[in-house]
Structures are given as C-alpha cells and as structure tokens.
Simulated scan of single mutants.
Amino acid sequence: MSFLKNTYILQFFGILVIVLFFSSVVIYQVLKINRGLERMPPQFEKVIFIADLKRDIMLQSSSMRDYIIYGDERFLKDFRELAAKNSEKEQELINVIREQRRPLAMEIKNLNDRYTALCENELVPLVKKDLSVQAMNVTSRGEILEVYDSLIKK
C-alpha cells in the first residue's frame, strides 16, 4: 500500500513539475512580448492616432450621408458630436506633432472645419426642407466634395 502511495506522490510531483515548466514558458513569452512593446517608437502612437482620426472623419461624413438619406435627427446629432470630437483631436495633433508637420495638421483641421461648416450651412437646411435629392446632388459635386476629398488625401 505504501508503494502505491509513493507512486501517486511521484506522479503528482511529476505533473506539478511539468505544469510549472509550461507556465514559466508562457510567462517568459508574455514578458518578452511586453518588453518588445515598450521599445516601440513614440511615432507609432502618432500613426495610430492619425489612423483613428481618419476613421472618425469618415464616420462623420457617413453620418451626414445617412442624415441626408433618412432625414433622421440622430444622424445629425452623431455628425455634430463627431465633428466636435474630431476638431479636438485635430487640435491635439497640432500640439503634439513635430514642427515640420504642424502646417499639414493645421491644414487638416481647417479643411475639416470648413467641411463641417459647409454641411451645416448647405446640406442641413436642404434636408430640413425635405430636399434630400438636392442635398445629395450638392454632395456629389462642388465645394463640399472637393473639401472632403482634400481632407481624406491629407
């Protein structure tokens, strides 16, 4: 009987050693990845920030398009919230970007502010008058399209 007890104890310790070994390998790999992430250059964060800003600008435009199509005030509210958020993010970008890139960041902010103003002054009144077809025509040509295209390219 004591022989079986000793065998079970040895098997238990053997399994415990194997589990501890694999756990230490996993922890080592996680720490290795974490150290690698700490060495990422600060420019990487700026690239992610700019990609998020572009996505949000496109969402802002999409909200305006949906407002024109459906006439639902929720889309207009989303457009305005995104416009305000994007304006803040653009200002933050201007503050953190290096001096050589600052004029480009300022141009992006000016273009988005201009795009927002054009939407508010030209498109919103047309939709409020139930002239969505005319609003779609305005978005497909003219200054709003030029400003938006320039904004996305920048």
Rank of each mutant, 00 (worst) to 15 (best):
I68G: 06
S62G: 11
D72V: 09
V147E: 00
K77F: 07
M64L: 11
T116A: 06
E107Q: 01
A84I: 09
I33D: 00
V19N: 13
K32W: 03
E120P: 02
L31N: 05
K109Q: 10
R39N: 15
Q11N: 15
E88H: 09
R74P: 00
R55A: 09
N95S: 10
I108S: 03
P125R: 03
N6P: 08
N95T: 10
I94M: 03
A51H: 13
L59D: 14
E99C: 11
N6D: 15
I144V: 05
K89T: 04
N112M: 06
Y115T: 00
V17R: 14
R114D: 00
V138C: 01
I48P: 02
L76W: 03
A51M: 09
V147H: 04
G71D: 03
E90L: 11
L111T: 09
V147T: 12
L4F: 12
V19H: 14
E143H: 00
F49V: 05
M40R: 05
K32E: 00
K54T: 10
E120V: 07
A105L: 12
Y148D: 01
V26Q: 01
G71K: 07
R39S: 14
F12R: 15
I33E: 00
L93P: 10
D149W: 05
I9Q: 15
P103D: 07
R39W: 08
N86Y: 07
R39G: 14
Y28A: 05
A51L: 12
A117F: 08
Y115W: 08
E73F: 11
R141D: 12
D78S: 13
M106A: 06
S87A: 06
D56W: 06
K153I: 03
V147N: 01
K77D: 11
N137W: 06
R35K: 09
F12P: 12
D66C: 01
F44R: 13
R55S: 09
I94N: 03
K46A: 06
L111C: 01
K153D: 03
R35E: 14
E99P: 11
R98H: 15
G36C: 01
R39Y: 09
M136V: 11
I27W: 02
E45V: 08
F22Y: 07
I48K: 08
Q29N: 05
Y148P: 04
F75V: 04
L31H: 05
K54M: 07
T116M: 03
S23C: 01
I50F: 13
